[in-house]
Structures are given as structure tokens and as C-alpha cells.
Design a protein around this nucleic acid. Structure first.
Lengths: 205, 205
DNA sequence: ATAATAAAACTAACGCTGTTAGTCAGGGGG
DNA sequence: CCCCCTGACTAACAGCGTTAGTTTTATTAT
């Protein structure tokens, strides 16, 4: 009615706020519209579908996560960089669970924008791994390993899978990260040995 | 109409089949009812809610996963047991993705039946870790670590997060498992050293 | 065998979801 | 100044889970 000059970006911002405050499940066309003092149908003047809007929130979430990770790495290198990265990832999942849920539920497949955004999550990881003497292939594998560890921890803790044992989840997580560093060192050492006897790609792992 | 003598179990079975064949998203009251040649409202003669039915499917999925893991362990011990367990977990996620999705989406929190079922997933892991010289607390932590790795890999691969790099996902997974074994051995050795100088709980990790 | 009861199906409806079509009003450019 | 486009509106559709109330059927008891 009052023609308040809403933009597509306003919808995205309102969606983010709605999801972060009221939670994942509260995201609906009519609820979002109500917050913008608009009827649900009017949303479609700015956005093609609710899905598109949700995807936009996902891109924001990914960007936030990426920034947090890059900030965590800062000037750190090697183990310190990895530890800081892992901790920031873990914190993001705990402190902004709804945003992280959005990332989880994004169907990265068959969506170009999201596929590109997924690359944004990879980047800080590859940066953190850049300080080690590794092949590019090893870095790719290790990036997946570390990401799986971090991702696995957050989702399972949030799902309540970690409540049956009376030991601290953060300690478990730290142990996982230290284990990862062990693996990295092991691969580094193997490479060093192979430099002597030119054994090529057939390391123990 | 024809009173075909449907049982609650029939609904669960039909739900499982519906989800496994048509996929996660196709699970709806009316679709399920149609397959049973029944109207949606009639489902409520056998089940309190769709949520309850969905939870039942989840319990089935967890039981299947547990069985697969126990079978994989078989008579194996230590590293062999862990490798077999990890591989069977990974296979389950790839071969029955819809069932695994169900497990993922179960809100384990605030549901006693599911909390108990969650314990079923832990059991084989603890069994596989039983062969190592570890404290009970270490086993609990390590169980979480391994579970996070396996879980993280499956979910991320299914979400399409692993497509940006041209290296085999299975190789990454194997690297992760071998890294986990490295961690386990490291903890075992520390324990051995501490037996000499009675250093107590303050290991390097 | 027949009457009573309980179980399982039905229809109709409610409130919610995303979405579309068609309508009306108001501000900016020719 | 008028026109027109944009952004709002209302009404409606198809789908969702779910409830109430009704009818049919099968079993059980007399």
C-alpha cells in the first residue's frame, strides 16, 4: 500500500534476521512478509521464489563463515593456522547455529551460484594448508578431511548425538584437530623421505 | 473401505519403501495413504502423527546401519576392525542415501526412543575401539572423532561439496581413516610411556 | 443367530505452506 | 500534465498435516 520502496536486498536482510532470531523453521513467505508490513504475494515483485531467497541467505552465511575463517588465520602459519581455522569453524557452528543449518541444507548441486560459494569455504582451508610441504593433490585430500572433521562435529553435536558420554565435546574436537595435524606431518615426512630414494607416489598412505 | 487389516507395521514398511524408492521429499501423508489404497486421514487410526511414523523409519535406518557395522567388524580387531567399520559406514551412506538422510534429519534431542537408538550407532564404534590400549575417556573421544569423520564425509559428498577437486573422494576418505589410526596409535604409545614415569593424565594431547 | 461394541475406513474441513492471476494506486519521465 | 510502470493489493489454487464426525465392517457376547 504505502509503497515503502523495498529492495531485493531488504528481503534478504529481513530473511537473515528472521532466520537468526526466530530460527530456521520460522522462515516462511507470510511471516517474512508480515515483518516487512507487506502481504506475502508482494514478495514476488522482488524475488522469483522463496527458494531463491533462501539461497541468497545461504550465500550470506557462506560468506560470513569464510570471513570468520580468514580472520582466524590472520598471519598464522601451519599448525597455528589450522588450529585457529578449526576453532573458528567450530565457534561459527555453535554461535550461529541457524545460519549453519542453512549452509547444511543448501543443495549445492545444480546451482551455479552455490557451487561457486562452496569454493569460498574451501579457500581458507587451502590457505591454511599452504604452509606445509605437500603436493597439490594431498592438499585437496587433506582439505576434505579437515572439513569433514569440522562439519561432522558441528552437525552431530547439534543433533544431540554427543550427549551420551560425559566427556567434553571441545576436548574431543581438539583431539580430532591434533590428530589431523599428526596426519599432515606424517605426509610431510613421507615426502621428505621420498626425496631421497625417489620412490614416487607409492607412500604408505 | 475394504478393511484390509492394516497394521502400524505396514505403515512403517510402506514409509520405508516410499522413502527409499521415491526419495526423502516424497514422504507425505497423502502419498503414503495412496500407496496403501487409503485416505490420508485413515493413517491416524494406526499412528499418532506423521512425525512418529518418520521417527519409526529413522529407528529402522539406525538399526540397519548398526547391523551393517557389526557385520563389517565381524571377527576383526584393531586397525582392521576400524577400517572395515569405516568402509561399511561410508558404503551405507552411498548406497542408501535416502535412509541416511533420514538419520541425519532426526532430532535426537528430546525423543527418548531416538536417544536410545543413537546409542546403537555408538556401540559398534566402541567395540571396534575395544582392541586398543586406551582409557575409557579416550575411547569416548575417539569414537566421536571417527564418527565425525565418517559422518562429515558422507554428508558433504552428498551435498556436492566435494566436486571441485579432481581427486577421488574414496582416497580422501581412506586418508582420513588412516589419519585416525595414526591418532589412535599415538595415544596408545603415550599411555605406554606414561606407564614408565607415572605422569598421569597430562599427555601431549 | 442376533445384538452390541470396537476398529478402521470414510468425508469434510481447518490452518498452514508456496505461488499465480488479476487489479488498483502512486511516483517519475516524456 | 498525462501516461505508464512498478509495487502493492485481494482472491484463489494446490499441496501439506491434522481433527471431527460419520459410516461401515469385523469381532465378540448374549
Amino acid at each position: 500500500m504505502a509503497r515503502q520502496g523495498l529492495t531485493r536486498d531488504d528481503l534478504v536482510r529481513a530473511s537473515i534476521e528472521l532466520i537468526e532470531t526466530e530460527g530456521f523453521h520460522a522462515f516462511s513467505a507470510r511471516e517474512l512478509a508480515a515483518r516487512l508490513r507487506i502481504k506475502a504475494a508482494s514478495l514476488y515483485n522482488h524475488v522469483r521464489s522463496m527458494d531463491e531467497l533462501y539461497t541468497e541467505v545461504g550465500r550470506y552465511a557462506i560468506a560470513e563463515l569464510k570471513d570468520a575463517q580468514l580472520a582466524a588465520i590472520g598471519g598464522r602459519r601451519r599448525d597455528e593456522a589450522v588450529r585457529a581455522l578449526a576453532e573458528s569453524y567450530y565457534r561459527f557452528g555453535k554461535e550461529r547455529p541457524e545460519l549453519y543449518r542453512v549452509i547444511l541444507s543448501l543443495p549445492m548441486v545444480k546451482n551455479d551460484a552455490l557451487r561457486q560459494a562452496a569454493g569460498d569455504i574451501v579457500e581458507p582451508l587451502m590457505t591454511a594448508l599452504g604452509g606445509y610441504k605437500l603436493t597439490e593433490a594431498q592438499r585437496m585430500h587433506l582439505q576434505r578431511v579437515l572439513r569433514s572433521i569440522m562439519h561432522g562435529f558441528i552437525t552431530q553435536e547439534e543433533a544431540g548425538c554427543f550427549r551420551h558420554f560425559p566427556v567434553e565435546v571441545e576436548d574431543s574436537f581438539r583431539m580430532a584437530v591434533e590428530g589431523f595435524l599428526l596426519l599432515v606431518k606424517n605426509l610431510e615426512n613421507e615426502a621428505g623421505e621420498n626425496e631421497h630414494d625417489k620412490n614416487g607416489q607409492d607412500g604408505a598412505l
